[in-house]
């Protein structure tokens, strides 16, 4: 029997424990494919966060470190400065990156540290049970905003790419989504571009990926995909916010 479609060698054989319809598996696969296609698996060190993707250290088939909540950019900095020839990426959710790790996120970007952040924005805390995230939309329900996010008492969401785009440091910032195949292809292209910029010593990239969390949102996987297109992408517009390579041309 001929194998026509299988796991890329950039992922391990371990069964991923993500919920049905979750976007993490898609993004993992894209990274796993790129590790092989770009021939960088053997020089990559990945940084796994705290959150649903904590087990990323098991899933990616490259050297991995699992680190304290929000601190992945700092750990990645330490790795990259020690091994500048390695490819270093962090994989972080919205709570990890944009709440507890805000300071590390801003400063790694300001330093234009030559690393890549893969940022999964699903507008909710998945692992701890669907609490309000720094990216939860106004009016959106969570287990700590049961009547919907009240911006008067709970403030407004953080638009990470726009926030970082205010800094001089970052080299490349793009927001993508993994709701439909066309966007998934764009996501892969964005990650590949970011990795290539790192290999070319260009500096800091962050790819923000709008991703489904049907469990946290209390909807079906199909509804979740629709919600990204119809609601979430309106608040978090897709596209390239910063690309120094294009500016230079």
């Amino acid at each position: 029997m001929k194998l026509l479609f299988g796991r890329p060698a950039g992922l391990t054989d371990i069964n991923q424990r993500y919920c049905p319809g979750c976007g993490h598996g898609i993004v993992h696969r894209l990274i796993g494919e790129l590790l092989v296609e770009m021939n960088i698996r053997e020089k990559t060190i990945g940084v796994a966060p705290v959150g649903c993707s904590v087990f990323a250290d098991e899933y990616f088939n490259c050297d991995m470190i699992q680190v304290p909540h929000g601190r992945a950019p700092a750990v990645a900095t330490g790795i990259k400065r020690t091994r500048p020839d390695c490819m270093v990426f962090t994989y972080q959710g919205d709570g990890d990156l944009a709440a507890i790790g805000t300071a590390e996120m801003i400063h790694v970007a300001a330093r234009n540290e030559n690393i890549t952040i893969i940022f999964i924005n699903n507008a909710i805390y998945g692992m701890t049970g669907g609490q309000l995230a720094p990216t939860t939309l106004p009016g959106m329900r969570s287990t700590t905003s049961v009547k919907g996010r009240d911006v008067v008492t709970q403030g407004y969401p953080i638009k990470v790419c726009e926030l970082l785009n205010a800094l001089d440091g970052p080299y490349y910032l793009e927001r993508v989504a993994v709701d439909i195949p066309r966007n998934i292809i764009k996501t892969k292209k964005a990650i590949k571009t970011a990795f290539q910029y790192q290999l070319d010593n260009k500096g800091f990239s962050l790819i923000e990926i709008l991703s489904m969390c049907p469990t946290g949102w209390g909807v079906t996987p199909v509804q979740a995909k629709k919600w990204i297109a119809e609601v979430m992408a309106n608040y978090y517009p897709l596209g390239e916010l910063r690309n120094r390579a294009k500016e230079a041309k």
Binding site: I45, V47, I65, V67, P68, R71, A74, V75, A76, T77, G78, I79, K80, R81, T82, R83, C86, A103, E104, I106, H107
Partner: peptide, 26 residues
């Protein structure tokens, strides 16, 4: 060598974590 003035002591200790994991005396 590498000298990094960090945004906080929290970042500093985590940079050590990364550097030492990658084989540096940090």
């Amino acid at each position: 060598g590498v000298f990094l003035q960090t945004e906080s002591e929290i970042a500093a200790i985590n940079m050590l974590f990364g550097a030492a994991a990658a084989g540096a005396r940090a």
